[in-house]
């Protein structure tokens, strides 16, 4: 076993070079480079944490703005709806008023026209009676040579006009 057989001859060399090279490694790598690497990692972790924090804050702010915008929007919408409803009510009332006025004018005109028609009918009927009575009397006097009483002719005509 060379580890033991050569121990006496090599131990000082082994220890010396081990200390030299491990010491070199420790000071150059361990003390020189590792802190820089660790610092880089820490810096990156910090940056990531900061970025995440900023993003979170921005998100919260956006949420708040959206909420306030939504509230404003809802108020505006309600206001608009109220305006529309009001205008609609007013318009409906105005229309109803105008319709009523027009209706009353139309009703008046209709009533007048109907009474005029009734009047005309009545006078026309009376005239027809007169004309028919005269015609009847003339026909009777000419055909039969009878001179009939005016009222008798009129009642007979009326009876015939009514029962046709």
């Amino acid at each position: 076993m060379p580890q033991i057989a050569q121990l006496a001859a090599t131990y000082s060399s082994q220890i010396f070079w081990m200390l030299v090279f491990f010491g070199f490694t420790f000071f150059v790598v361990g003390r020189g480079m590792v802190p820089k690497v660790m610092e880089t990692v820490a810096q990156r972790d910090k940056q990531i944490a900061d970025d995440l924090f900023a993003a979170e804050r921005a998100r919260k702010q956006a949420d708040e703005e959206e909420a306030s915008w939504r509230a404003r929007e809802n108020a505006n919408r309600a206001e608009a709806q109220a305006l529309i409803a009001d205008a609609r009510g007013k318009a409906a009332a105005a229309t109803a008023d105008r319709l009523a006025a027009a209706q009353s004018v139309i009703d008046g005109t209709l009533a007048a026209a109907e009474s005029r028609i009734a009047e005309a009918c009545r006078s026309a009927a009376a005239e027809i009676e007169d004309v028919a009575a005269d015609a009847t009397r003339d026909i009777v006097s000419r055909v039969a040579g009878l001179s009939l009483d005016d009222s008798a002719v009129r009642s007979a005509v009326k009876e015939n006009l009514v029962h046709g």
Partner: peptide, 17 residues
């Protein structure tokens, strides 16, 4: 008086370093 010969062992320590 202590031998510090640069041996094959030392060489591989150097390579590892």
């Amino acid at each position: 008086g202590y031998n510090i010969a640069f041996t094959n062992s030392s060489l591989w320590m150097a390579i590892a370093t």
